[in-house]
């Protein structure tokens, strides 16, 4: 029994020794590095960088959340496309787009030749009004063209819309309140045959033709009708509530 004691003690001493040495070595190593002042600077930089990195990561996270929020709102605003197509349809209906297509051009001109002859032959009974194109001629021709299925109409490049008025002040014809001068070129987009037929049987053309006015109808494969450039007055208009809108 007593022979084993020295052995045990020796073991304990050895382990304790190793332990002590290891502690001392570790501490020395740590102390010697820490003592280096440039290492201290580096450590400070690293600590600061670490803090900055954490802060940045947090900010990025937050920013991503906000971007997601806006994106979600934008999805709800898909209405924009719907509104745009509705506006496009309305602009079409109100003459606010240029239009092209097949159709006819009706040319009406004052009867200057006959007027000159009549003036020379019978100056006393000469009435210049009998030899010029009147506002009513244009007004009724527009109705004829509508009866012929015209999809868009213009007179001397003035687009005719629902509220376009055609009138004369003195001997000047106003369309959309713009002064026009002869010859009048009335363009209509639609089936050229149908339009021609309606004009030939209408109120204006046969009447002028019978009186030898220089008038003609030209069927065309493609004509251009400009957009309406005037305004719309809506000062007294209000949408009537409680009624459903018609289908198109």
């Amino acid at each position: 029994m007593s022979k084993r004691w020295p052995l045990t003690l020796t073991l304990i001493s050895i382990i304790s020794g190793i332990l002590l040495v290891s502690i001392i070595l570790t501490n020395q190593a740590a102390r010697s590095e820490a003592a280096d002042s440039s290492n201290a600077d580096l450590i400070e930089i690293i600590n600061r960088l670490e803090e900055e990195t954490l802060a940045l990561e947090e900010m990025i996270d937050e920013k991503r959340d906000r971007i997601d929020e806006i994106r979600e709102q934008q999805v709800e605003k898909g209405t924009l496309a719907t509104l745009q197509s509705e506006l496009e349809w309305l602009r079409r209906r109100t003459g606010l787009t240029q239009v092209t297509g097949p159709g006819i051009t009706v040319v009406l001109d004052d009867n200057e030749e006959l007027a000159a002859a009549a003036k020379a032959n019978a100056p006393l009974t000469f009435d210049p009004n009998s030899y010029i194109i009147h506002d009513k001629d244009l007004l009724y021709l527009v109705n004829d063209l509508r009866l012929g299925g015209a999809e868009a109409i213009s007179i001397n490049n003035q687009r005719i819309i629902s509220s376009s008025d055609i009138r004369c002040v003195g001997t000047v014809i106003l369309v959309n309140s713009m002064r026009l001068a002869p010859p009048y070129e009335i363009r209509a987009i639609g089936d050229p045959e149908k339009l021609t037929k309606q004009v030939l049987n209408g109120q204006t053309f046969p009447w002028l033709k019978d009186r030898s006015f220089p008038v003609e109808i030209i069927e065309e494969e493609s004509i251009q009708i400009p957009t309406y450039k005037g305004g719309f007055s809506t000062a007294h208009l209000q949408v009537m509530k409680g009624e459903t809108e018609p289908d198109d």
Partner: peptide, 30 residues
């Protein structure tokens, strides 16, 4: 973009409301 869209929606809505009055698509009173 989102602010632009918001203002675009407003402009377009204004235009639509005005053209609705004159185009005949809606009953009107006055």
């Amino acid at each position: 973009q989102s602010q632009e869209e918001t203002s675009a929606v407003k402009t377009i809505s204004d235009d639509i409301n005005r053209l609705k009055l004159v185009s005949g698509v809606t009953p009107v009173t006055g």
